[in-house]
Amino acid sequence: MTTPLLGLVLAGGRSTCMQRDKAAIEYRDGQTQLAAAVEALRPHVTKVFVSVREDQRTEPTRRHFDQIVDQVAASGPIAGIASAQAVAPNAAWWILACDLPFLDHATLANLAARRDPDRDATAYRSSHDGLPEPLCAVYEPRTRDALAAYIAAGRHCPRKFLLRANTLLLDPPNPRALDNANTTDDYWQAMSTLNPQLAVSQREIRVQYFAILREQAGRREEVITTQARTPRELYDELRGSHSFTLTADSLRVAINGDFADWSRPLSTNDAVVFIPPVAGG
């Protein structure tokens, strides 16, 4: 009799570094990361569950999925893995993190094809440090007792658990596929990589300086490559780099030779002049 293979998407994290619920982030097509992970895993397993903490059961991003609530006195992903093994002790569990924005079909299909039920686990070798990637891996039923003992001993690192176990390590077909997005910086990078049409465009702006700004900038003009969308954003950027003492409130701005509004959108090759308080006559 073959061992059933079930899926568990981990969504119980507290997303402290991201400052928002990672499961609910929508990178593509208006689909949450959690839903995208569940759908990606579904073809490869008999059934997909979502790992949650007790207080997350009715939370809108999670409530529509079959859930396995943490019931192990441990924290972190290992609590979810052990809870799943307790619910279905004779199943193999494919564990998948929900915060892998670059996860692709090839990575999942390759793991499904190469999984070896005669080993303790099948996992990818990290393209960063060569260690097992514990959060896109299949844990065979025989790891259940060892994992429970590991937690009972106060250990909680699933990566080290796989390192000590008889784990089949695979080379990932796409080295970036398992890069997780943990911080707000990761989020913006993933967002612009996955949605090139949303990437903030760079503009080349010619800036001329006069009077006190010329002296403080140490130049009469320069060409700035910037992501600033308006003269106000551009001035704030330049004020930082040139240590201008004047605030934007005391200035006027000219674009292409005429006075302009501070919130007018900048276009590439615009010529911008920031006008300090005047003193003619």
């Binding site: 006069f210 009077a211 006027r252 005047v278 003193a279 003619g280 006559g281």
Partner: peptide, 10 residues
């Protein structure tokens, strides 16, 4: 002229 023109005096 004193109020509007971008002229500066050092």
């Amino acid at each position: 002229v004193k109020h509007r023109l971008p002229i500066w005096k050092k």
